[in-house]
């Protein structure tokens, strides 16, 4: 059997995390190729609905990355992210999806290494969880 290769979606805010991901690239930091980044202006614009949509369609894991608390380009935007995303993860738990398929973290524009570390860890974690069970569900 082929090794399970998770398919992961990541939302990165334009000001910190996307820049941190860029920096990881500039420094040629190698990481598993499973994470596909979507740029959003602020982590606070990530609707829980996007996470539900992705997971219900079989995406194996969702990363939400934003600026560190206090550093959000839009003042307090990520305070909301900090509440919303864990709640979204908990709701997934209620319907039988392991909440560890969603991870929220803070990556600054200077933290290329942290981006690499978060991506590498998350891919490992999702590999351990196995394929998203929703892939088997036919509506």
């Amino acid at each position: 059997m082929n090794e399970f290769n998770p398919n992961i979606l990541a939302f990165c805010c334009n000001w910190c995390s996307y820049a941190g991901a860029d920096l990881a690239g500039v420094n040629r930091l190698q990481m598993p190729p499973n994470v596909n980044v979507v740029r959003v202006m602020c982590s606070a614009s990530v609707k829980p609905e996007y996470i539900f949509k992705a997971v219900s369609q079989g995406i194996d894991g969702v990363l939400v990355l934003g600026c560190h608390i206090g550093d959000c380009h839009y003042l307090t935007g990520n305070h909301r992210t900090a509440k919303r995303i864990p709640l979204a993860a908990r709701l997934l738990g209620k319907v039988g999806i392991d909440p560890r398929r969603v991870r929220l973290d803070w990556v600054s524009a200077a933290e290329g290494e942290k981006f690499q570390q978060v991506v590498t860890e998350f891919v490992e974690d999702v590999k351990k969880l196995g394929p998203n069970p929703m892939k088997e569900v036919r509506f």
Binding site: V40, M41, C42, A44, S45, V46, K47, P48, H73, Y74, G77, R80, R84
Partner: peptide, 8 residues
């Protein structure tokens, strides 16, 4: 400022 916080 276009952060999108309201959208979510």
């Amino acid at each position: 400022k276009g952060c999108g916080t309201c959208v979510a």
